[in-house]
Simulated assay, not measured.
Amino acid sequence: MEILLFGITREITGRQKLTVPEAEQLHTVADLKHWLTNQYPALKQLSSLAVAVDSEYAENEDLLTVDSEVALIPPVSGG
């Protein structure tokens, strides 16, 4: 599974996208968030972190597959 990163999530990870090893067997968005914060503890400091799966905002209980297109959408500040 590949995860596209935007905004501060790119800064935290130092990457534009991440690849989750198939061995991780992440089944839900909650599983993914848990894995991500273990890999990159600084993500825990964000006030919010939205996840989009297949171009739709996803909830923690939504299911993932190895073919899911996942994007992390950090909080946005405007002015």
Rank of each mutant, 00 (worst) to 15 (best):
M1N: 09
I3K: 03
I3Q: 00
L4Y: 11
L5V: 07
L5M: 06
F6G: 14
F6W: 07
G7A: 15
G7H: 10
T9K: 04
T9D: 00
R10F: 02
R10C: 01
E11R: 11
I12A: 13
I12N: 13
G14N: 00
G14H: 05
G14T: 02
Q16L: 04
K17S: 12
K17C: 07
L18C: 10
T19F: 00
V20H: 02
P21N: 02
P21S: 05
P21W: 06
P21K: 04
P21E: 01
E22K: 12
A23K: 12
A23P: 00
A23Y: 05
E24Y: 04
E24R: 00
Q25D: 12
Q25V: 02
L26E: 01
L26F: 02
L26W: 02
T28D: 12
T28F: 05
V29G: 01
V29W: 05
D31M: 07
D31P: 03
L32C: 04
L32D: 07
L32V: 01
L32Y: 11
W35S: 06
T37E: 03
T37H: 14
T37L: 11
T37I: 02
T37Q: 14
N38M: 13
N38L: 14
Y40V: 07
Y40Q: 04
P41N: 08
L43G: 11
L43D: 05
K44M: 14
K44G: 10
K44H: 13
K44W: 05
K44S: 13
Q45E: 14
L46R: 15
S47F: 03
S47I: 01
S48M: 09
L49N: 08
L49Q: 09
L49H: 05
A50H: 09
A50W: 02
V51Y: 06
V51H: 07
V51S: 14
V51L: 08
V51M: 10
V51E: 12
A52V: 03
A52L: 05
A52R: 12
A52C: 14
A52F: 08
A52G: 05
V53P: 00
D54Q: 06
S55G: 15
S55M: 15
E56I: 00
A58Q: 03
A58M: 11
A58C: 03
E59F: 15
N60V: 00
N60L: 09
E61Q: 06
E61R: 15
D62W: 03
D62V: 02
D62A: 05
D62P: 11
L63R: 09
V66K: 13
V66T: 15
D67M: 09
D67P: 01
D67Q: 12
D67V: 01
D67F: 09
S68E: 06
E69D: 14
E69T: 06
E69Q: 14
V70A: 02
V70Q: 09
V70K: 09
L72G: 13
L72V: 04
L72A: 10
I73M: 10
I73R: 11
I73V: 13
P74C: 08
V76S: 13
V76H: 05
V76C: 09
V76T: 08
S77T: 10
S77H: 12
S77Q: 05
S77W: 03
S77D: 10
S77I: 08
G79R: 11
G79E: 01
G79W: 04
G79S: 00
